[in-house]
């Protein structure tokens, strides 16, 4: 059962309510968004309605979540200056800086 306008599931017929987790802030392309401490970066992005995570090297095509278990690399973004980070298996940390990655990414660029 989803509250309208939110992608987070507040209560589930089998799973009940999600476990309590501190709300933290991460910076995505320069914009602060609310995330839950420790959830995968990809989950935080989806919860905020963001689906495009990167653009491919040769044709600049958008990519997003695909396998969600760290096997396919479609979800890669640049995190705290490190490119090609699989956001589906990387937990959120307060103040983390996440950037939509263009192509193969570049090391050391922390700000959008």
């Amino acid at each position: 059962m989803v509250c309208s306008g939110s992608w987070r599931i507040r209560t589930h017929p089998i799973l009940g309510s999600p476990p309590e987790r501190p709300v933290v802030e991460i910076i995505v392309d320069g914009q602060a968004i609310r995330a839950l401490d420790g959830e995968p970066v990809a989950a935080a992005l989806l919860a905020n309605g963001m689906k495009v995570f990167r653009y491919t090297e040769s044709r600049g095509e958008p990519r997003g979540l695909s396998c969600a278990i760290g096997q396919c690399t479609d979800c890669m973004m640049t995190v705290d200056g490190v490119p090609n980070v699989r956001t589906c298996v990387t937990p959120v940390r307060p103040g983390m800086r996440v950037q939509t990655q263009h192509g193969l990414g570049r090391w050391g660029e922390k700000d959008a």
């Binding site: 989803v2 992608w7 987070r8 599931i9 589930h12 799973l15 999600p18 959830e39 995968p40 989950a43 989806l46 919860a47 689906k51 495009v52 995570f53 095509e61 958008p62 990519r63 997003g64 979540l65 695909s66 396998c67 969600a68 278990i69 479609d74 589906c88």
Partner: peptide, 22 residues
């Protein structure tokens, strides 16, 4: 390859582990 095309397990992971509707 469009964002929003996911494998079935990915939908499960997001819903059932992370309480996020994909």
């Amino acid at each position: 390859t469009l964002p929003g095309v996911v494998r079935a397990g990915a939908a499960q992971t997001m819903m059932n582990l992370h309480y996020v509707l994909p």
